[in-house]
Design a protein around this nucleic acid. Structure first.
Lengths: 208, 208
DNA sequence: CGAGTCGTTGAACGGAATCAATCGTCGTGG
DNA sequence: CCACGACGATTGATTCCGTTCAACGACTCG
């Protein structure tokens, strides 16, 4: 797991913090799921927090009419349900999006550890505020109607030194910035033939 | 400031928490700005956090090409820049969107207070996680292409007991969910004539 | 009273979604 | 080992609807 792979995956910063905390907790379980498995459902009591080791899980909220809304997709290296640290109930369903492995930590243990270690709390706060910044930015990026502009703003915001590295598929990227995959592919092609960007393997370079 | 007016404004929950903390801090300054005034600029040292008393401020990030991106709009009752609590520099510009009054608190005081009061830290964490949940939801709502669907999902997610109360203008609402104002107005009209919703003064009722 | 803002409606355009088809690759199981 | 399915990547054609520009009435506020 090199350093560079995290550049395109800022939210994953949490894992480092989380593992800091979590490495102090003796009890943890490694569990595996197959595509479609439900890890937990809405309204269930929150007992565990998770870290994704491999694969991908979806957090889905179902509304009254039975329509479902993907709230979040967590990738390898990310923790999730940490937003439920202080909820009694999960606020969404969690479904394995493919075969995946997870680490599971008792919420009680984590809260106890946090209470005993104010420094860890500060680290957690720091991480949460960073997530909030990222989410606000992403949210505003999604308000950009033009696909080309949306892509360029996203790339500029995620790139380090003019290069955006991605570990996930372009399909996932499309989902992340709220575009149909075809639209993403098409506009990436156009942007490349316009000389605005250069595609490499697993990365996109922004040409100034 | 009644109870009901916050229903349509979930993120504002932070203010209660923040005021809890902030009420313990003796030093605070009330300041006023006119539309267009800059409260701070990107890369400036973070010295203060703010609470909006009246009016509206925009957090704007400017990129290399001079394009600007609105990251967040903070309304009366909301705190902002709290995400910069642990940053040395602001990550965006802050511009008054109209005439507004703010309370200004020293970041140093707040951090000191937090360090001395672990309980407040927990409250803060709780609040930040709640903001993250809201932002994730909003972000996914913005991924819904159909304006009618986007509006309905938003209303359902914000409504309490089938009624969505809003204090801000519909124009602000349009901005919030990433629609052009005309699209919002039009589709609200259609939804109403379809009997899906009923408009009242300052609120929208969802008809099941 | 006039400037500014919000709410509303009309018309036209453009571009994003959608449906559809194809190719390559990877993994799996018979 | 190969056939098959699953998935990512790609391109084409079409439709539709959200944006944009424009104009106007209502209202507030200085």
């Amino acid at each position: 797991m090199g350093l560079v792979i995290w550049v395109g995956c800022r939210a994953s910063g949490i894992v480092n913090m989380f593992l800091d905390i979590v490495s102090n907790i003796t009890q943890s379980q490694k569990i595996a799921f197959n595509k479609g498995d439900r890890l937990f459902v809405q309204s269930a009591t929150v007992d565990y927090l998770y870290v994704v080791l491999s694969g991908r899980v979806k957090l889905v909220r179902e509304n009254l009419e039975g329509n479902s809304l993907v709230i979040h997709i967590a990738y390898a290296g990310e923790s999730f349900a940490e937003a439920s640290l202080f909820s009694d109930q999960y606020h969404c369903d969690c479904i394995a999006d493919n075969s995946c492995e997870l680490l599971k930590f008792s919420k009680k243990d984590i809260l106890e550890f946090l209470n005993k270690n104010p420094k860890s709390m500060m680290t957690l706060i720091q991480n949460l505020t960073s997530q909030i910044r990222d989410l606000r930015l992403l949210s505003e990026i999604k308000s950009i109607y033009s696909a080309k502009d949306r892509i360029m703003v996203f790339l500029n915001s995620e790139a380090s030194e003019g290069v955006f590295y991605y570990t996930y598929s372009l399909l996932d990227l499309a989902q992340k910035i709220g575009l149909a995959q075809e639209t993403l592919y098409r506009n990436i092609s156009i942007l490349e033939s316009d000389g605005k960007i250069t595609r490499q393997d697993g990365s996109i370079k922004i040409n100034y």
